[in-house]
Design a binder for these strands. Sequence first.
DNA 1: ATAATATGCGTATACGTATACCCTATGGTC
DNA 2: GACCATAGGGTATACGTATACGCATATTAT
Lengths: 344, 344
Amino acid sequence: MGRPPSSKPTSFDIAYLAGVSQPTVSRALRGSKSVSAATRANIERIARELNYTVDKNASSLRSQRTHTIALLFFEDPTPDESMINPFFLSMLGSITRQCALRGYDLLISFQQMHNDWHVAYQDSHRSDGIILLGYGDYQLYRAKLEHLVEMDTKFVRWGSVSEDSIGLTVGSDNIGAGEAAGAHLIAIGRRRIAFLGDASAHAPEFQDRYTGLCRAMAAAGLAADPALRQNAVSSEESGYAAAKALLARGTAFDAIFAGSDLIAIGAMRALAEAKLRCPQDVALIGFDDIPAASQTSPTLTTVMQDMKGAGELLVDALLRRIDGKDPERTMLPARLIKRQSTAV
Amino acid sequence: MGRPPSSKPTSFDIAYLAGVSQPTVSRALRGSKSVSAATRANIERIARELNYTVDKNASSLRSQRTHTIALLFFEDPTPDESMINPFFLSMLGSITRQCALRGYDLLISFQQMHNDWHVAYQDSHRSDGIILLGYGDYQLYRAKLEHLVEMDTKFVRWGSVSEDSIGLTVGSDNIGAGEAAGAHLIAIGRRRIAFLGDASAHAPEFQDRYTGLCRAMAAAGLAADPALRQNAVSSEESGYAAAKALLARGTAFDAIFAGSDLIAIGAMRALAEAKLRCPQDVALIGFDDIPAASQTSPTLTTVMQDMKGAGELLVDALLRRIDGKDPERTMLPARLIKRQSTAV
DNA sequence: ATAATATGCGTATACGTATACCCTATGGTC
DNA sequence: GACCATAGGGTATACGTATACGCATATTAT
């Protein structure tokens, strides 16, 4: 048989040159121990010379393993279509790297929540598993998640770990972080601590942060005043409005713990307008440590989530799940970043 | 033959249920016109009922088309491994969306420049084409690019379009943008315009921006003074040092065009230290419109590149190249954003 | 009416790999 | 010396799809 050296080399080409059969080539390159060292070395040499690479499609088809992970971003329908939540973007780096490290390819896709992504990715053999990153409100597609579980599709998602979970969830220790934030405020002498953040089941992370705050207060013998809890979604506008509402209500407070930095920045503006000094009159803590948090005046004390660790943990957890094992760990510690807004 | 309905449905299952042969199913679902409307409708109905999706691996293997694009990020080896250049990240959104729109999957990978990515991606049939995003210095892997061309691998990269290109390049109209920046400075009465940016062939974008500036000056009957050109790489430190050097040299100037915002911000600091007012004494223009540009004091006039258009154009150009056609357009207009640093 | 198309589909096969199974030589065991 | 395990690797085949080809029937042209 003539070997046309022009076209991409296959395992047959190598087999021919090495004087063995094609399966032997496959075995040698995949590390099967039923190939002699000499044969394997020879095959590897020839493969290198020919610039041979295993055809991923054929390999995946035969083995039913793609060595690929799909990353699905979910997004609110936003006017500016090219925006991505910077918070999740920062995870992308570590996810990519962790995948590469583990020998997996990474497939990326943005999804509107109403799409049939759960069908498209479960059966088309594009990936061995799925990572879901979204805006937290998994209630909206609970049914689809349940469908994934039913079809035994492997997936992990980023979210609130303590929540009654569908499938596997990885997330920051929001309760612990909230507790640390509360403890810090108490340590600087604050007693009347307000919380700004969505109280509904649609935002379990916010719930957890509030729970942590309450826990810290309880530990200090304080009671959380329900009147000091004000709803807000994660935006500057919403934070501004929430702080305004709180002020209008007239209930006294000497600190605010905001569910996110955006909320905190909005609140900061409301405080300034009300001629309240931060931190002297009202100390302020945010969450996320977005870049703007170190640019505000005063700079914002906040909680930094370990995005690098998050990406790695998501990948690790998913790979364990794919291998039929259970992940050891799904919660990540977060770190309090102390800045001027709590420096008294 | 029994149909085990438990396992993932294949085209054979559909064929059986529809009473046709498997190839007919394939033809029907791929839109071949040699299938009757009735048969096609029936097949499509059954496919929907079974939640059937085409097995991507088998399809790609047979057709030798993956309908997947690989996006390769190149990065300087950086201590913080999870950092991604935010500039390229902002392109990711539009690239992803454009891929989805065109029915392509997107494979993402970070690469160190020394790796053998050119081998791994050209032959393993993972993708039909490659998008390369990096830090501009393609000289460093010129050989690998030539290898890609030689192997007839389809790829596009982001960079300086005017440069003597290997393969297909998409980029902003740096010359036009430089010209616009120069024209603006001249319009506000500036005559002695300094340029901060790398003059070597490693930074063709900077070269182009300078060329544009010279062109604008020439159009106004002015000559660019070579003494007012100062080397700098894209970092705040380097911009600071470059401005310092310029000031130390004592050559008079009333404006600075910086090759990037980071350089401009560094220069702004040097000006402040030298007790020079911006823009009154020295007007300043940057490039890129990074978020910080609107936070500086004074806010920074700069050039905004069309990242959304860039992503779309990269994908479009690559798909045309894959189809054997040549792209119509590879250059994107950039837009001058006027802020306080040139407001006199 | 007969030949020339076209329509709609079945038959056979290829894509490149991985694995179940089988076979042949060794070498050691009793 | 008959017996069995083991190493090393060949044979056959499956993974699920897409396409070249052929073959009827239906349609039109002549």
